[in-house]
Simulated assay, not measured.
Amino acid sequence: MTLNQVKTALEHLETLAFQLPNGELVPSHFHVTEIGKIAKHFIDCGGTVRNETVVNFQLWNANDYDHRLHPEKLVHIIQLSEKALGIEDWEVEVEYQGETIQKFGLDFDGTRFLLTTKQTDCLAKDKCGIPAPASKPKIKLSELQSSSCCEPGSGCC
Rank of each mutant, 00 (worst) to 15 (best):
G46K: 05
E88R: 14
P137Y: 07
A134M: 08
R50A: 13
E95W: 06
F18E: 02
L80K: 11
L74N: 07
H76D: 14
Q79S: 12
S142D: 12
I139C: 10
T33E: 07
K73N: 09
L25H: 08
T111H: 15
Q97N: 07
R112D: 01
G110A: 02
E72Q: 13
T2Y: 04
K127T: 02
K37Q: 08
R68D: 09
T8F: 04
A124T: 06
C128L: 15
E11H: 11
L80D: 15
D64M: 04
K40E: 02
T15N: 15
E95G: 10
L141P: 01
I101Q: 13
E99A: 10
R68I: 07
E14H: 12
K40W: 00
L144C: 05
G105H: 04
N22Y: 06
I130R: 12
Q79K: 13
I38P: 00
C157D: 09
E14M: 01
L115Y: 07
G47P: 02
T100H: 15
F108A: 02
C122V: 09
H41T: 00
T120H: 08
G129R: 11
P131A: 14
K127D: 11
K73D: 12
F113R: 03
Q97D: 06
F30Q: 03
W90M: 00
L85E: 14
K118H: 01
N61A: 02
Q97G: 05
I43L: 12
S147T: 12
F42N: 01
R50G: 08
L80G: 12
H76T: 08
G105K: 04
C157A: 11
E34H: 13
G23I: 04
T53Q: 11
C156H: 14
Q58C: 06
L3Y: 07
K40C: 00
V54T: 08
H70R: 14
K136S: 10
C156I: 07
S147C: 06
L59E: 03
S28M: 09
F104K: 07
T48I: 14
N61P: 00
